[in-house]
């Protein structure tokens, strides 16, 4: 290289290539451990099942065939249940219902809890006091018990289920959001924005939210798996998602009677474990990804 054309600025400018966020994500993923890859692939698989359930499933969700308890065959890969519904199709539709409802509930819970938490952190007045004490009281009752009590009063329907679980779960989101936002609210740039005369919405969205994103994203994963397990447990108890909607918790309960025939027909006996494992696999996957994400963002290298 001739020294004549050398330009320091050009060299410096060249080194600093600006990467798109997709590229940066790829760089992060390349370094991700095996467990995180496993988790991500599983989650993508579930999303695929959720979105294309109509195309993958061989039969309809609540379509009833002539023969109940049909054995495994070409027509019914996993046989039919006690009402003559195709089990494989119900499993696939179950992905959409179970995961979809849990996702919706978690989003709602973050909208309520996160929003109120931010407001409480910014305006630390009587509103903060009232909300915090209220949340303390709600947290004093175990959420499954509380959900059971509310379902007894309002009756179990999908809408009630989503609202009840979302409101109960938002208390934990509120606590976390408020706690992390309190550290950011005292920063100078927030004060500057306030003096500039920005409105509450702007301060929440543009000044504080970007700075508390990593813990909230990790919490989203954890809360999702908690909500998912709660809804599955409620459905299993027969109080969550109601038939004929296909869902994994209900399927475990319906298929569990076959466990007693395990000695005579292994495939029949193990049927109940398929929806059960589907629930477990997703929670394990989400936990793996959250573990990796927390590791990435917080620099907690020594935890493991």
């Amino acid at each position: 290289m001739s020294t004549k054309n050398y330009s320091a600025t050009a060299e410096v400018a060249h080194v600093r290539t600006r990467r798109t966020w997709l590229h940066r994500m790829w760089l992060g993923l390349k370094k991700a451990p095996l467990t995180a890859w496993f988790g991500l692939i599983v989650i993508l698989g579930y999303l695929f099942c959720m979105i294309f359930a109509d195309l993958i499933a061989p039969h309809g969700e609540a379509e009833v065939f002539a023969i109940p308890y049909a054995p495994w065959s070409e027509e019914h890969r996993l046989g039919t249940d006690h009402l003559g519904r195709d089990i494989l199709s119900r499993l696939i539709f179950g992905a959409r219902n179970t995961v979809g409802i849990a996702l919706l509930t978690t989003l709602l819970s973050f909208a309520i809890g996160g929003g109120l938490g931010l407001v409480a952190a910014i305006n630390r007045s009587w509103l903060d006091q009232i909300l915090s004490r209220f949340v303390d009281i709600l947290l004093a009752i175990p959420s499954l018990i509380f959900a059971l009590m509310l379902l007894a009063v309002f009756g179990s329907s999908v809408l009630n289920l989503i609202i009840i679980i979302a409101v109960l779960d938002s208390t934990r989101v509120f606590r976390l959001t408020r706690a992390v936002a309190l550290n950011v609210v005292v920063m100078d740039y927030v004060e500057a924005a306030r003096l500039r005369g920005e409105k509450l919405g702007w301060i929440m969205r543009r000044e504080i939210l970007p700075n508390i994103m990593p813990p909230l994203v990790a919490e989203f994963g954890l809360r999702f798996s908690f909500v998912f397990l709660t809804i599955a447990a409620l459905s299993f108890l027969g109080l969550g998602i109601q038939p004929p909607t296909a869902d994994w918790g209900t399927m475990v309960r319906e298929l569990s009677t076959f466990i007693n025939y395990l000695n005579y027909d292994l495939r029949l006996g193990l049927l109940a474990f398929i929806p059960g494992s589907a629930i477990a696999l997703l929670t394990v996957a989400v936990n793996f990804v959250v573990d990796w994400f927390l590791h990435q963002t917080s620099g907690l290298r020594d935890e493991h």
Partner: peptide, 23 residues
């Protein structure tokens, strides 16, 4: 433990039931 935390209680219960009460 990370795996067993992720398992729903009813699944653990049925696995134990299948192993220790049926098989």
């Amino acid at each position: 433990t990370l795996v067993s935390i992720s398992l729903p209680e009813f699944l653990v219960a049925y696995v134990l039931m299948a192993l220790l009460a049926v098989l």
